[in-house]
Design a protein around this nucleic acid. Structure first.
Lengths: 220, 220
DNA sequence: AATATTACTATACATTTGTATAGTATATGA
DNA sequence: TCATATACTATACAAATGTATAGTAATATT
């Protein structure tokens, strides 16, 4: 017997709840999330999900446990991290943005490759909203290398001199932001790459600031 | 107000329970583990632990959450390196080494400032054993800056060309490691800093390789 | 020395919560 | 087509659970 779409949705809600609260939901929590008016609807799903090997439980309060099978499926479908990581306060999960599909908002589901656990101490006072992997060498002067992962606080404005992520024709670029007399300038810190100048009348059309870089991570 | 031994024991039991069951314990669970005959004894401890910032809870069933503070403290007491996490973990706690006290082993309790949660995906295939904050600009050529946090896999040997952490007279330095005809050479990637050459007969005395740098993290 | 905190026992009560009963409607598979 | 599984609503009950009351005793703290 295969898992149904509805059961999958319930499983997803259980997972989301654990991620958010770090303890499992009750039948009533799930019923509310799913819009059921009776907890029985939720427990019926639990029974099915347990029979199919996606959860384990005993008849105690909040004792649902997601199995590896569930985690595998969720990972396939939503690329979520293991809820075993939850329960650790101070860790947030940043969506790792892959290729940015034209037209979609940056944080659109379609753009999210996976979620990565990041300790909040790694993202500074204001936190971060998403992560990106850097492509190219345009910011080597600021010690941001090809392949580095950057963590970004979502914002559509920037202060002079800040390192920002901007969308230029649906491509994410990392640059230093400067205001000029007649617009803005996005400057690479590698002099091989010329600065991009945008006049006020063009700005907003092809170029959009999507956030400020708050952290850089690199595996060696 | 400092945490008491008894409160620490309760915190440990909560941690153990979560690790074992993946959902938090009730007051009665804790009472049983601790040998209390009343759940009130446990909730009294919960109240103290919450006041001291080790747990968070609301008045729902099994809603205890351990804080970073608690996890850091538990790691310290639970012997090094990371114990129970092993399961699905995804996150390990690296001791952040502060000043290295003369004579002590690098990972000695005295040297550990705090424990920081780090996703295992941040530390590569072999993981890391501790973290250090970089002082000075000697490795800017390799894009490792003053103030960066580096994650280190403990090892007392190194391959040619690897970026290592070495102890020179009880001071931790980050350098590239090279073998020479008559010993080793620790090379800065900032040419302002001259290479350090150690002949075989001196090596082992004043210089000790303590690990390989596997990751760099920087807040901007 | 007086006071507050810690560390419990014992009992009880009100919520929270899992689960059961009873039923409707739709979809699926043999 | 007939049985089975899915997907719920509505109500209710019993167990699980947080928390309160009322104490005792030891240990810190001022």
């Amino acid at each position: 017997m295969k898992i149904t779409d509805r059961q999958k949705a319930v499983l997803g809600k259980i997972h989301d709840f654990i991620m958010l609260n770090s303890y499992p939901p009750t039948a009533r929590d799930v019923a509310e999330m799913m819009g059921f008016s009776s907890p029985k609807a939720a427990t019926d799903h639990f029974t099915s999900l347990e029979k199919k090997g996606y959860i384990k439980r005993n008849s105690l309060a909040r004792s649902i446990k997601l199995t590896d099978k569930a985690l595998g499926m969720l990972k396939k479908d939503y690329s979520f991290p293991s809820p075993a990581d939850a329960g650790h306060a101070g860790i947030s999960y940043l969506p790792l943005i892959g290729n940015i599909a034209a037209g979609n908002p940056v944080l659109a589901y379609e753009n999210i490759d996976e979620y990565i656990p990041v300790p909040e101490s790694f993202t500074g006072a204001y936190g971060a909203d998403f992560a990106l992997r850097v492509k190219g060498r345009s910011m080597t002067g600021d010690h941001i290398l090809d392949g580095d992962m950057i963590m970004v606080k979502a914002r559509n404005t920037a202060e002079n001199g800040e390192i920002v992520v901007a969308l230029i024709n649906d491509e994410a670029v990392v640059k230093r932001f400067y205001k000029t007399k007649d617009g803005i300038e996005l400057v690479s810190s590698n002099t091989d790459y010329p600065p991009i100048k945008i006049s006020i009348k063009d700005a907003g059309d092809s170029v959009k600031i999507i956030g400020r870089v708050v952290a850089v991570h690199r595996n060696i």
